[in-house]
Write a protein that binds this DNA or RNA. Sequence first.
RNA 1: GACCCGUUCGUCUAUCGGUUAGGACUCCAGGUUUUCAUCCUGGCAAGAAGGGUUCGACUCCCUUACGGGUCGCCA
Length: 430
Amino acid sequence: MTVRTRFAPSPTGYLHVGGARTALFNWLYARKHNGKFILRVEDTDAARNTEEARQAIFDGMNWLGLDWDEGPQVGGEYGPYQQSQRNDIYDEYFEKILSAGRVYEDDGAWRFRFDRKPVTMNDLVCGEVTIDYRDASNTPDMVVKRSDGSYVFHFVNVVDDLTMKMSHVIRGEDHLMNTPKHLQLFEALGAEPPQYAHIPLILNPNGSKMSKRDEGAAVGDYPRQGFLSEAVVNFITLLGWSSKTDEEIFSLTELIDRFSLEAVNRAPARFDLEKCKWVNQQHIARISTEAFTELAKPFVDDAGLPFADSAPAIAAVKEKVRLLSEVPAAIDFLVTDTAEPDPEAVEKAKANPNSAHLAALADHLATLTDWSADIAKEAIGVVAQANGAKPGQLMFPTRVALSGRAHGPDLGDIFTILGKEKTVARLKAF
RNA sequence: GACCCGUUCGUCUAUCGGUUAGGACUCCAGGUUUUCAUCCUGGCAAGAAGGGUUCGACUCCCUUACGGGUCGCCA
């Protein structure tokens, strides 16, 4: 049997992390088992659907690197992949349950008559779960076709999963109680249901349900906040899944290799932006300097810094930032003369007695004929010794004088990028 | 309210009856880096509560508490 999984978002808002993780787990499962991953747009709620939301979902999926084998834009043999275009199919399947006597009219709408019996599902994550459908007051017959003739979610979802030949349905735990309904529909249609796996929801740091406009909720915000897509993928996979080893930094292909539904947790996980940033830093450390420079370019451009001059500076801060968005503020003093110094750092440096030797250092550096990181650093040692100080003690004042910051790139990099003239000038000015 | 699912350091998690309950983030302290960061070492910190079952329970069962989910002619 071929593994076929799907992500079935409704285009009523931006792609949020919960949906992204659902998509991701389906994608990982399909890729791991050499199956197919299908994207299906559940746009039956005409009033709430928007084209922007549709595009946001595509953009989010593309950014995360989750490509689909069948669906909008790529087609496939079980299309169309938008529910708004599948009405003939729904009519056809509705006719089946109608002629089988499983639906009855109620106020112009059509309700599906449940079999009054306990329904047991064998969930790949939650295990065996039984819901008792003998109690009709708890499980009233559901509307499958509205009085305006349109079909409701449960019906179209099942017909689509059936006709699109889904083998596994991995979805949020909020659908767990819907599953018996879907199982009954499959049974009424005489079809074999897919395997279900309900994954726990993602919660806010305070334990409340994560929803729109909560920090970190919108996938679309991550690129402009300076996250790498692989880092975000890595992090949200860790929310509810574990490799069972001490490792936790994985590339997309490593995740495919290690992913399994058995290792998915049952308890909801809270979203921790701090750890997400740390994961991002780990991924930045793993990519090449060239790749990092390219990724940082938009941020440098947006900050109005000249990218052409910035490349060496960007390379110098690769190991210093957690987010790409931190790059401009980390390099501005290297590529412009107008960067605002940090008053706290300046004050601290001025209070440092070794700052008194900076003038001597400037004079000494000015006499040098060759210029390199090593030569300049050696000069610090010479000046320090001449003034009865240790080389290390002169490093901090020099750093602040040149950068206006207490933290930053390696001093050698600063010397090299600034060059002799600017270095001497800034030391004197300080 | 009814029905489901869940509950290990503040957070993400390992543990599938016998461990000094391990790792990671955060925080703190050292070390490396003649500087900053990275990095390394160490530290703080957990089995919701109460009953069983068992020679032995974080692990299995029950109860309670707490958290989440679902109860639409939304998806």
